[in-house]
Design a binder for these strands. Structure first.
Lengths: 345, 345
DNA sequence: CTCGTAATTTAGATCGTTCCAAATTTCAAG
DNA sequence: CTTGAAATTTGGAACGATCTAAATTACGAG
């Protein structure tokens, strides 16, 4: 039941005007007479005309399409990020190519190439693990605005929106120290990523600041997932001098850590302090509710999208690095104040 | 640093051939001589030529773009669904417009219209609540393949991939009956949705089959969320003749139900049987681990995408309704077998 | 009426590709 | 050498919009 598609020419013929006039009506130009506009409008509706944006883009050589490439949509942090971008992109009248890379840099390269062929106006990328500056260089050099989000790629002159991992980690560790903890671990995350490095340095700096042990053995890296959290906690429990609390690389790791603690009959939030990072949706409703460093992923997504749109509209732009503020949200997983008293007593 | 873009004509000139030949090379035609192909290929790489798929689409009036519209990406069920679709769409060399509607039917209408203008070849839609057949009628009539996923829209002749809510609910209820429960409730979900209706009928049919009470008061609808679960369980506990177990509309409701039971000092999985629906990631690790009807969202997404691609490739197609099999995953929230003995003793 | 200016409308080129039909080259057989 | 079929290559017209510059129409003033 394929309808023969109707074009501006068909509309023009039916309305008794030229295609130029129809085009003018389409873009809401004030040059066209009110009665003509009405007539053309009526014909458009009657014929069920569908605007062919591709043809328009070809002529104008610009599009209202942005690319959004995310490394892991099943992780609710990145899903939230995507939703935030989606909001502002849609509201600005743009539409997005969105793709998930599953942390696969090759696949990432393919989808970015494809998006380029389709004429995207700009790209927001949460880079897959292992993305190099060289991977992105050609795209960036072509003059298409690119905004990196959540993760950075060292050695690339490009805009980015990331959270302040260092400050977040410091405030989390300071909180644990105030609660009386003296031996604190850092759990999870791949140690070859910039994000890991930043959070881990925040962790270290806070320990050093308080004159506490900050030796390497306290940093236990693993996959940044729930399973990785379980694994990391197991290794931690095997230590001679066991920590009494831990800062986790992200919330997923923190949940995994809680699972791991429970199966060792250690109750998180009571016998052991756990702090996460990201503040995903589930953090609030988990049991125990997770104390975590909130980075407002949706807000970051919005920020990134706004930055990208700004750069698209400004013909000319400079790379701009935004660091999103974070704040510690204290819930129950690191011990309530009254319990702390017992702990320190 | 905007590069002047190179086109087939530029490549042709540089390689000393005609643009037709370049085009042939681009589409890997066997008509072109091997040495010419190599020369053109070299020039393409050297000049950094980027294929303009928009122009090609215009000429051929077909595209390799599909639309994916999801009602709530922050819900991990739908995120998994999206990832499943993404996989097969990408592998087939297609690229996707993806948009989130946040259950807003108006926004959904806008993005679908926009995707249409951009010339998508087909659409996979997980419709927002309140989507009517009339909303989708024009699109479907235009001959563009549409596949509905996860939710159906009554009165629309269009393909769909949904889970077998009826069978899933029946098997869940049968399981509860085997465990010795004789009075079972159905909790949560909006009673004006097709999904609710289907699951609820499965619930009823299983009760009737066993000769048990299936009266209306046992069906307590509410928002399909954690909060809705709490509310529903409260209403249930106020009944004269209290049920001893419940099938919940989805896992979120089930988690809420557990919360509600606990605050009434009833331990889910011990004093009361709870079964969920969907098998979201958290179901496995919750305490108690949730017995639930697993629907493999990622698999459903893949299935839907395959169906869509099939319809795109077949010029002509019929609406096809797929029902994804489900299976009951028994964990701990409905009482382990040994506990059942005590219960029935 | 005629003119000039403002208000509308329009023809035709153009964007970067594909496709058709025709032109050109290649080459083995006669 | 021809010659004809096979192998390659190519010019020019699409595709459906926009844009420029020019044509046409409208209309109040002289």
């Amino acid at each position: 039941m394929k309808q023969p598609k109707v074009t501006v020419v068909d509309v023009a013929r039916a309305a008794g005007v030229s295609k130029s006039t129809v085009s003018l009506v389409l873009q809401g130009s004030s040059l066209v007479n009110e009665t003509t506009r009405a007539r053309v409008g009526a014909v458009i509706r009657e014929l069920g005309y569908v605007y062919n944006r591709g043809a328009a883009n070809l002529r104008q050589s610009k599009s209202k399409i942005v690319g959004i490439v995310v490394n892991d949509l099943t992780n609710s942090f990145f899903a939230e990020l995507a939703v935030g971008m989606d909001m502002v992109v849609q509201s600005a009248g743009y539409i997005q190519f969105m793709a998930n890379t599953s942390e696969n840099a090759d696949r990432q390269g393919e989808v970015i190439a494809s998006m380029r062929e389709h004429g995207m106006a700009g790209l927001i990328l949460s880079p897959a693990r292992g993305t190099t500056a060289a991977d992105l260089k050609p795209l960036v050099d072509s003059g298409i605005p690119v905004v990196l989000v959540a993760r950075n790629v060292p050695g690339l002159k490009v805009s980015s929106v990331v959270s302040d991992g260092h400050a977040g980690a410091m405030s989390a560790v300071r909180h644990l120290i105030e609660l009386g903890h003296r031996r604190i671990a850092f759990l999870g995350g791949f140690n070859d990523t910039a994000v890991f490095d930043e959070r881990m340095r925040g962790f270290r700096d806070a320990l050093v600041e308080a004159g506490l042990d900050a030796s390497d053995e306290l940093v236990i890296s693993s996959a940044p997932s729930r399973a990785g959290g379980v694994a990391a906690v197991e290794r931690m429990l095997a230590m001679r001098d066991r920590p009494t609390a831990a800062l986790c690389f992200n919330d997923a790791v923190a949940f995994g850590a809680c699972d791991g603690l429970r199966s060792a009959r250690i109750e998180p939030g009571v016998d052991f302090g756990v702090i996460g990072f990201d503040d995903v949706i589930e953090a609030k409703t988990a049991v125990p509710a997770l104390t975590t460093v909130s980075v407002d992923p949706q807000g970051m997504g919005r920020r990134a999208a706004q930055l990208l749109l700004k750069q698209i509209n400004a013909g000319d732009f400079d790379a701009e690095a935004m660091v999103a503020a974070v704040r510690l949200v204290v819930r129950e997983s690191c011990g309530a104040p009254q319990r702390v008293k017992e702990l320190t007593a």
